[in-house]
């Protein structure tokens, strides 16, 4: 967990106090954190720990439960893959007793399996299958009511794919990359250009710039001994 995950630079002091202090348990602070979530959704920011703090409050105070907020948190966590954020959120969703006096149906029970399915596809790098599922008719409800509100959701998914591609490829065909990004033609080219990657015009293969993960090298790891490991031997010798 890089330090930007533990404490994103966009996190305000107020939120920091809530995330790191005892005040995180105070149910009356939930609206501050919920507002912060909606801010993240509008401005393409992400703060996992702050969102987990909302789920924690829901866990302890079932009356605060707000399924829409939970769906939004899960959508944000989805695009953090392969970090474990999505699972961390699910871990906090305690079983809820069946709601007897329902005024309005709870959308979460029906959406949860869908979201878990999407997460599994993303985590397993099954990007074409992800897009197919995401664009399917069954997920219309999710798209129309939720992901549409999450600014840059589809691009965030593409970034998940880019992270995976960058690590595993030095070259990739445009068709394959397109299927991972759900982009074709000019859109795809524009996206590739924005990444700073180049397309070989003759073979239409995309070259991916070198990075630590796609540079491989057979190495022999040699042991390296540092002075501190020898202190016992040396000091003993000095005493003797």
């Amino acid at each position: 967990m890089a330090s930007s995950w533990i404490s994103p630079p966009t996190r305000t002091e107020l939120i920091e106090d809530l995330v790191s202090g005892v005040d995180r348990y105070n149910p009356s602070n939930v609206s501050i954190l919920e507002d912060y979530l909606y801010h993240q959704i509008r401005s393409e920011e992400y703060d996992c720990l702050a969102n987990l703090a909302i789920l924690k409050l829901y866990q302890f105070n079932p009356e605060l439960y707000n399924p829409d907020v939970i769906v939004n948190i899960l959508l944000k966590a989805l695009t953090a893959s392969p970090l474990p954020d999505f699972n961390l959120c699910i871990s906090l969703l305690d079983e809820r007793p069946p709601n007897v006096n329902t005024d309005e149906p709870d959308p979460l029970p029906s959406l949860l399996p869908t979201l878990k399915g999407l997460h599994s596809l993303l985590y397993r790098c099954r990007f074409p299958a992800f897009w197919k599922a995401y664009r399917s008719e069954e997920l219309e409800n999710l798209r129309d009511n939720y992901t549409v509100e999450v600014v840059g959701f589809e691009n965030a998914v593409r970034e998940v794919a880019i992270r995976a591609v960058k690590a595993a490829f030095t070259q990739i065909s445009t068709t394959r990359l397109g299927s991972y990004l759900d982009l074709t033609g000019a859109d795809l080219e524009a996206y590739i250009r924005k990444l700073g990657w180049t397309i070989d015009p003759s073979s239409s293969v995309v070259n991916i710039p070198p990075n630590p993960d796609n540079q491989i090298e057979a190495t022999v790891v040699q042991e390296s001994i540092n002075l501190p490991q020898l202190t016992k031997v040396i000091s003993h010798a000095a005493k003797a």
């Binding site: 490829f169 293969v205 491989i216 022999v220 790891v221 042991e223």
Partner: peptide
């Protein structure tokens, strides 16, 4: 075991660990 894919070709490189003597000696 590390690898990278260049278009359709998988290149593989394996890292091995040299024998460790120092710990034994220490």
């Amino acid at each position: 075991l590390n690898f990278v894919i260049a278009d359709n070709m998988v290149h593989i490189a394996e890292s091995t660990i040299g024998r460790r003597y120092a710990g034994w000696f220490i």
